[in-house]
Amino acid sequence: MREHIRKLITPSMRFEIRKFLTWAQDIMGRACLWRWEITSFRLQTSNDYEVLYVGRKSRKEMAKLLIGGKPEVDTKPGDSTQQRGVAPHRVLISEMPSAGALYVPHYLSAIIPLGRPLEEIIARYDGELRRNIRKCRPLYRMQQVLTDEEIGKADREMLQPYAQARHGLHAQQFDSQDVLRIAKTVGRLDLVMKGDEVVACHFGCVITRAGKRYWSTLRFGYPEAVFNDPKRLREVNSITTFMALEWAIEQGFDYYDIGQCLARPDDGLLKWKRRRGGDVDTLGNQAFMFVRLPKTGIAKFLWEFPLFAVEGSRLTLHLGLPDGPSDEEIVDRYREMVFGGLFKIYIYCAKAPGELLLENLRDRYAHFQSPPILEKVVCN
């Protein structure tokens, strides 16, 4: 009976059901007000912004990560920065909406549109990356593992240690039973071999959204000998991602999801995925925070801490143009914040930007099929 009902529900409907259940679970978690706290923290000693955080204690570290600062010791809400002789510019981060707040996702996925030749996709890679892939790709092969023992070994020796080494206390480990279940049903786990040596593993699954099929990377894993060697890790990481892309194209998928990363425009991992053709997408992520910008110093704040936000179901990017930086510095700052998948870019200006600067920013998006709308916001 259960299997019969499952067959009546399309994969796209199952995706929407999972998305709704995740959203409902998050809302129920927010409703536990006894787990909330109200606290303040400074982002960095070099700036004069203070964050007032209102939400669950367990989500406070995520708030700090999303803004991207290196916070000092938390302070009490009444401990005003004015007492330290610094003009306070207060930012409110809350788990509940407030007037004018940005709806900021915790994580984004990087999605590569397929349905075109592999050579067309990698044509946008920089020259050095293309050369390295062509040189190293023949040395590697991928091999699916199917037994419980092999899957468990890859989880223990590669997936979990690499996540712990990369993210430390913030590592979100997959439950071992979930790894086993997914690898034997809607996904697969592959070992990446260089000769006879296992140098990586790839854990992925199929996602169907709005009738389109995505091959989604859930997690990469590497043995300690690889992830402790930065040069070797760079090579293996690039080849593992490339092989997953190859496989997705061979299997006729519509998109390849390189995987989730922190939804911060200057995040290094997101930039790495952008250079491989990944467009930003929430892809079912239902974890958000509400960020209300400071009443003064908005342009400077978003210059230091740019933000993604969601309007309806569409992604926006919020950037700042403060007094001080030259046009060359601004262009250099935002050089690697050019993302496909955006609906709109808001430019918060402390002064009227030069037309050449705006034209430069527009030109960076000219090659996209649907370039984002560029909107200026005059602020103090």
Rank of each mutant, 00 (worst) to 15 (best):
M1Y: 09
E3I: 14
I5W: 10
I5E: 11
K7N: 14
I9Y: 11
F15C: 08
F20E: 15
F20C: 11
W23T: 01
Q25K: 14
M28A: 14
M28E: 13
G29C: 03
R30K: 12
R30I: 13
R35C: 12
E37P: 05
R42S: 09
L43N: 03
N47R: 03
V54S: 13
G55M: 06
R56F: 09
R56P: 13
E61F: 05
M62R: 10
L65G: 10
I67D: 04
D74I: 01
D74E: 13
T81A: 12
Q82T: 13
Q83G: 03
V86C: 06
A87P: 12
H89S: 13
L92H: 07
I93G: 00
S94M: 08
E95F: 10
P97W: 07
S98M: 13
A99E: 14
A101S: 15
Y103F: 15
V104F: 10
H106M: 02
S109M: 00
S109P: 00
I111C: 01
P113T: 02
G115P: 01
R116A: 06
L118G: 02
E120K: 08
A123F: 06
G127H: 01
G127T: 10
L129P: 00
L129E: 03
I133F: 06
R134P: 06
K135F: 11
C136Y: 13
P138Y: 02
Q143A: 12
Q143H: 14
Q144M: 09
L146A: 07
E149K: 03
E149A: 13
E149T: 11
E150N: 03
D155V: 02
R156L: 10
P161M: 04
G168D: 04
G168V: 08
H170L: 12
Q173M: 13
F174Y: 15
V179Y: 07
L180G: 03
T185G: 08
G187N: 03
D190V: 01
L191H: 10
M193E: 11
G195E: 11
E197A: 12
V198R: 07
V198G: 00
A200R: 04
A200D: 02
G204R: 03
I207S: 00
R209N: 11
A210M: 12
K212G: 07
K212W: 07
R213G: 08
Y214F: 15
R219Q: 15
F220K: 00
G221I: 05
P223F: 01
F227M: 07
D229W: 06
P230N: 01
K231L: 13
T241W: 09
T241R: 03
G252Y: 07
Y256T: 02
D257S: 06
D257A: 00
I258V: 12
G259S: 02
Q260K: 12
C261N: 11
L262M: 14
D267H: 14
G268M: 03
L270V: 05
K273F: 04
T282H: 00
N285G: 06
Q286F: 04
Q286K: 04
F288I: 04
F288Y: 14
R292G: 08
I298V: 15
K300W: 09
F305L: 08
L307N: 02
S313Y: 05
S313T: 12
L315Y: 00
L319P: 06
R335G: 08
G341H: 01
A350Y: 07
P353M: 09
G354R: 14
L358K: 02
E359C: 03
H367D: 10
F368E: 04
